[in-house]
Amino acid sequence: MTGAQNREDARGWVTGSVAVVTLAFLLLPQIILLVESFTADSYLAFPPTRYGLRWYAFILSDDDWLDALRRSLLVAAIVTPVTLLLGLMAAYALDRGPPRGRRTIFTLLIAPMILPHVVLGLAQFQVVFWSHMQDTVTAYVLAHVTIALPYAIITIGASLQVFDRRLEEAAQSLGAAPWRAAFHVMLPVIRPGLVAATIFSFITSFDEFIITYFLSTRRVTVPIQIFNSLSFQLDPSIAAISGLTLMLTIGLTGFLMAGGQIASGGRILR
């Protein structure tokens, strides 16, 4: 009895310790970077001797950083809804469509998740080069949608799979045409999947480096700007832009997840 109890406790301790160490390993570098970003020194060091928002002010007034930040946000803001819409349509078709060829189509659609991004980047580089679309937002959007789409299809597909179709039938029997039943019942019910897909798409786009690197020369996004400035000097502006990215993604995720929860008490859409 107590022996079993002790063994339970011991197992709990081991599991707990492993979890803490793993988390520390994953998160500590980011926390250190975040702390460093609030330095008022003119060099990158841990811990900083003085604290302040000096470097945040710097990147938000520096033309290069602002330009990259604006471009990244613009691309992500286009990529997210486009991916969401395409992902929803693809997941819906895979869920409801005829079973023939379903597996093949699914595999093709999520292939970008498995293929090496270097290969994808090179392939897209050729297309973009021939069609003279280097350095354009369109090229970045197309590239980012390609790699964000698999995540959207998988998360939306998962919530469609657990969605009880009798809800739609109930709605139809109450006088809702199929598209209204989908709009008023299916979409709100699979909302968690849509929220997850939104977060994934935004972060995938905002974060993308390899493929965008192939497609850009001068008009860069934030990750590329970080890379470029790293290779030429190491100052706290990099910590500040990383901190900004981190807070942006955490903020977005938190906002959407809270929204998803609160919305379940909402009224019907008019």
Partner: peptide, 12 residues
């Protein structure tokens, strides 16, 4: 229509 599983709209 009334189902065995109720099929109420969970978000409403």
């Amino acid at each position: 229509l009334v189902f065995q599983s109720y099929a109420l709209f969970p978000h409403l």
